[in-house]
Design a protein around this nucleic acid. Structure first.
Lengths: 203, 203, 203, 203
DNA sequence: CATGAATGAGTTTTCATTCAT
DNA sequence: AATGAATGAAAACTCATTCAT
């Protein structure tokens, strides 16, 4: 009884949390972080306020889980595409392409994460897509590697990583704000062009 | 008596408002827009909460004045530099250089404006430095002009304007977060390089 | 479980609202509408301020419920008495008698409603007992009917309805202010006498 | 210098107070007592808030002066008309007629006084026109006198006085609310008819 | 004398969190 | 395990009053 029950319980628990996280994403994406009170999230999820406090230690934990779950999901998609590429340059291109592809399908999730990154008290509010340095560090490392491999010109890798993130982010905001007027394929191609013009060593 | 008094009064009033605006800038820049309650601003200014309500019709008016005063101040500096340049390409370069120069001296002011642009309910939340489309439109127009003049390659001007703003913005955030490790002169030069590589027609 | 629980919950909720409404009535009746802040009501009810905001959407809703619940309660008593009477004259007499009877038992409730009617922003502030035109209109209709039936003399029905309400209201205020010195039975009889002398067609 | 100056000062002082009282009347009549903050009154008077605090010990004193000045002004008009009449019955009729006449010309003043009587914390909120018992006592005394003189039937004088005031008051409210639809002359005649039917000894 | 800047108490409302059931 | 009632802090705003100039 113990094990089975524990197993089921954990599954239920995890499923319940996932469900709440999904509604939190919806709420934040549609109403903005400031308006996304536990009440609103609970109402949208069709449960009582207390449920969230029951399943999560606090609002902070819920928000954390929103960020980590979205990042994990996107990370899976993005890194698998990056892994297919042998060199740094190819990986960077795969990064941009796969993030934009993810953006097309998961607008709300990314928007929620950006909202959180912007509004969080502790957050530096930097304009990276993820709000977290790890991604920037990975990109900077790839850029440095590309320089060592002789494919990329000389520039400060961290700065370029920040700018790349900022441009992707700006594209997301534009997609959210004017999705109907925006040709995302064209924009993605243009973003890659800009990035490559800016970074590739000139012939 | 009347005139002198009126004169003095208006100066005092305007000076007082300017003082409160300055403290609002400080508070928003250091604690973020969400934490910048009237209480906090008042405390930092060393006055009681009511003072702000006395001098401003509401929080909205105070915030507006923060934005407009910073934008007006920066606009003066930036546009005078742009006016010195004859062509679109020169103006764009002057824009980047003078915004970065302004950023160096008025970090807090710009940070406050960015915070406001991000957190305001009505705001589109886009990652442009100013939070306002007008600047983006001006930049887009210059980019289009540069294309017509044959100096810039073909790309969607609005998108490029958004990206330029996003990069400037990211630079500001980096300056705020890691000012001591950042060589702003180098970064500015690099930003111009990136922008020109990305936009100029290739020989 | 679901049904019982829902049932109990609804009863509890409604009971809690009723309890808060009762305390609101008390507070308004004793301290006046202007002083009846949510703080005062909550304190008197022995709960925290937030409780009211929890059970009611806002102060407005609480006040509305005070008015509607008192009016509904009184209306039941009054209209059942009026219905027993066939003619307009009998109904009017029943109206006066039953309102005064209700007044004797539910002084605070009526006082609260009058206070609200007087102080509410939207309120016309007229001196009718109920603060609402509907009652005046019903009375005016009855008066007009009595005139058509030939039992009442000729006068402007609406004006007379207003005056009747004003007199009932004045009686309530006197009851509140000097209840110990007032012979309510005598007053009620006298009010009916006055009303009938003023309205009945003279033999 | 002393006397003249004092003299002039006192006149100025009194004139200044009267001016503020006039604006207080306007404000209360048009916006209601609740909205009649010192700010609003001062703004309407075109002076600074401090002026009122300077000329009056507090808001209470200003409001008192509104009441007493209006009552004094109306009292003058009303009592001179009453004095022309020899008997109690004539005086009562003169009272009603002259109050209604005053009402026609000084709607705002009476409305302000009623607003104050209703909303004042200490006030019982009774529906008498003046908010003060003295008038009721005078009317009650006249009614009792009329009874002694054999012209009026037997009824409780104080109650009848309250009802008379309540009816006059209701007429004022109707005048304010629907002045354009109300035939004040007709209403006044009707009020006298009602009053006389209700009080005069039947032949 | 007169002003208007400043204060601080008080209002309604929102919200994350706690807790008894 | 889950609920929802209750709390208390914090927010923006209003206002009568005080006080230095």
């Amino acid at each position: 009884m113990g094990q089975d029950n524990d197993g089921r319980t954990r599954v239920d628990e995890s499923a319940k949390r996932a469900r709440l996280v999904r509604y939190a994403v919806e709420t934040i994406a549609e109403e903005g972080f400031a308006k996304a009170s536990l009440s609103h999230i609970a109402t949208r999820a069709g449960v009582s306020k207390g449920v969230i406090s029951y399943h999560f230690a606090g609002k902070e934990e819920l928000i954390q889980e929103v960020v980590t779950s979205v990042m994990a999901d996107m990370g899976e998609a993005v890194f698998s595409r990056m892994d297919e590429q042998p060199g740094a340059v190819g990986k960077l291109r795969a990064y941009i392409e796969s993030v934009v592809a993810y953006m097309r399908v998961h607008q709300a999730e990314l928007l929620a994460v950006v909202e959180i990154a912007r509004s969080r008290p502790g957050g530096s509010g930097t304009s990276d897509l993820t709000g977290s340095d790890p991604v920037v560090r990975v990109l900077a490392a790839l850029l440095a590697q590309g320089q060592e491999e002789g494919e990329l010109r000389d520039f400060p890798p961290r700065l370029m990583a920040l700018w790349l993130q900022a441009m992707i982010n700006a594209l997301l905001m534009e997609l959210v704000a004017r999705g109907d007027e925006l040709d995302l394929d064209l924009a993605a191609r243009e973003l890659i062009t800009v990035f490559e013009l800016a970074t590739h060593r000139r012939a």
